[in-house]
Every structure is written in structure tokens, then in C-alpha cells.
Design a protein around this nucleic acid. Structure first.
Lengths: 165, 165
DNA sequence: CTATCTAACGTTATATCATAACAGTCAACA
DNA sequence: TGTTGACTGTTATGATATAACGTTAGATAG
């Protein structure tokens, strides 16, 4: 496992690979137990599917995989599992893509920001705690009680930036 | 017109009212002329509709108004006008709401951030230039070429925060 | 051990958001 | 004045998301 630096910025490590997937899944299970929520088979499998994916997945892509494995075949099955994961901090919704991605550090309470590659749609999760703090202050200066922020950046990932076009 | 402070934060002024609407519309027309794009009747009217709205409007809400006034009745009419406005900096898309809102300072090139009220859905546009700069730097540290960011915060606006529940 | 309760699951049906593709219109201008 | 290209409008369809309801299964009180 890699160092996830403390306050701000994006982490530069590869989050793919079976070992990492397993580790995150284990963290998620621990956290679910601790907070008294149930990581049921569909939910767990949905999280695995997100972890195995390269980028973010749309709800219907998740549904396809779930139904192929004998789970329900209709949209609510996927949406419910995905919403559960998001609400409990195991996954994030990427608004720009209408898609979902596994949280890379579900064990820690954090504010996330995302780098989305315009070309390959890869999604990198970063820690936006310092940004969020600044936002909370700027908002409260105008009397706005900020609860949560969505920070999504679009551009070229290092892999795609290297390629011609 | 009020002072739109330079680098960061949300502005505390009321952006509604016919006078302000007219001023922004005038700025938009100037800018359109300068940049050689055409602010046609549908596009102009669409911008007015956004300016007159209290919060952000969905494309179908805009379409409703447009078609009631003799413009086209089908979704592409609204989406084309809205996309034109967004691409040219006259409006913004609010991802979280699948909705659109007029830009409150179309004359200036800027990075926007939004405060979205959970209760009344009002949208306040703020200037995120300093956040964006910090993001660009954090992103480039991991080799990501950032092009644009979406920053949307959800919480309670000052009006709603005062009310009971 | 069984009755009961509730969270989760699965389904049908439908709502909501968005765009592809193509035909007609009109102003700019060679 | 004919051609071009941007704009508008239409039909049709695709993509995303949720409401509502019956069923299942795990927890728990009796």
C-alpha cells in the first residue's frame, strides 16, 4: 500500500491490481461492520466491479455485469447498490460522467476531488480537504452553510498527454 | 452594479432584478459582437429566460417557455441554445441539478464555483480563480494537464438556514 | 422453535434528460 | 443571383433514473 499524503493533492500511485482491490475491499468490510451497515452480496459485488474497472462505470454497465452473474436485471438493482456505496463512503459519483467509481481510501473520512481524462475517461481521486476548508470559509462569508462539495477537473491524464492526438 | 472582488470567493450581492438583467444582457451582446458569435433571437431569449429565473433551470423548463413564445417545441431547440450559451461563457451548466444558470459576469473570463441550496435549489455563482490555480498546480504535480474544473458545493443558503426546517 | 418485523431485493412501469439525423430557412457574399 | 454555411425546426430514439409494489430472508421477541 502506498502513502496517501495528508492534506491535499492527488496521489500518484496505481490503484489497480488484485492486491489493492482486495485490500480496499477488506477496509470497506471493516468499516461497514463498525458503522453497522450491511455490505450484502450485491453491494459487495458492486463494489468489486467498480474496483476492477479501469475508469468510472455507468449504472447500466454495472447492471450488465450484475445481471450476468445472476443478480437482478433491472436498473433499481444497480442504482440501489451504487447509492448505498456512495452514501456510505465506499464509492463516489462522478457527475460529469453520470458514472461511479470506487473510493480509493474508504477507511478515511475525506473530501475527494477528481481528475477526469477527456480522452480516456480515466478518473483519479485526490484529496481535497484543504480546498474544501477554504470553500467552507468563503461560503460562510456570504452566509452559506456548506455541507459537501463536488470538485471535478477535466483535462489530459499523463498517459494521454504523451500520445500524439 | 457591484464590486466583483478580484480573486476568489462568492459575491454577496443580489443578482436579480430587471436592471441587472438588462445590464448583463448588454454585456453579453457586446461580448458576442466582439468575439464574432451570433446572439440570435432564440439564444438571446434563452439567456433572458435564465436571467429571469430564480435558480437554475432544466433544459425542458427552458423549452417550455421558448415554445410558449413561438420558438421550436422540441428538445434540441433548447439544448442547442443552452449549449451555445455555455460554450461562449454566457451561462453555466450545473451538473448536480442537470440544469443551467446565466453567468453573472459574462464580460470577464473567469473560473466559476457554485453554491447550491439543498432546500430551495438557488444557485450562487462565485469566482474560483484561486482554487482553480491551486488545482492546476496539484494536478500538474501528477502529470495531469488540467483544462477546466467543475466546483459545486451543496448546503443551505442564508435564507433557508434561517428558517426552522 | 416459530411468529413477527424490517431491511433488502427484484420486478414492472414510467419519468426525466439528451442527442442523432435530416429538411427547411435565411443572410452573407462570390 | 446562385451558392454556401450557419441556424432553426422536426422526428425519432437513446441514455439515465426513480416510483411503486410484491417477495425474500435475516434478526429478534415470545
Amino acid at each position: 500500500m502506498t502513502d496517501h499524503s495528508p492534506q491535499s493533492g492527488f496521489c500518484c500511485t496505481d490503484h489497480s491490481g488484485a492486491a489493492h482491490t482486495a485490500a480496499i475491499l477488506a477496509q470497506a468490510e471493516t468499516r461497514a461492520r463498525e458503522s453497522g451497515v450491511r455490505l450484502t452480496p450485491v453491494r459487495r459485488r458492486t463494489l468489486e466491479i467498480l474496483l476492477e474497472a479501469h475508469g468510472a462505470l455507468g449504472a447500466y454497465e454495472v447492471l450488465e455485469r450484475l445481471s450476468a452473474e445472476g443478480y437482478g436485471t433491472q436498473p433499481p438493482v444497480a442504482y440501489r447498490a451504487l447509492n448505498f456505496l456512495v452514501e456510505n463512503g465506499f464509492a463516489h459519483r462522478i457527475q460529469r460522467l453520470n458514472a461511479f467509481t470506487a473510493c480509493v481510501h474508504p477507511a478515511r473520512d475525506h473530501r475527494a476531488a477528481f481528475l477526469i481524462c477527456d480522452r480516456c475517461n480515466s478518473v483519479t481521486e485526490g484529496c481535497a480537504d484543504s480546498f474544501s476548508q477554504a470553500m467552507i470559509e468563503a461560503a460562510s462569508a456570504v452566509g452559506f452553510q456548506l455541507e459537501r462539495s463536488t470538485i471535478e477537473a477535466v483535462g489530459l491524464c499523463s498517459a494521454c498527454a504523451g500520445k500524439p492526438a
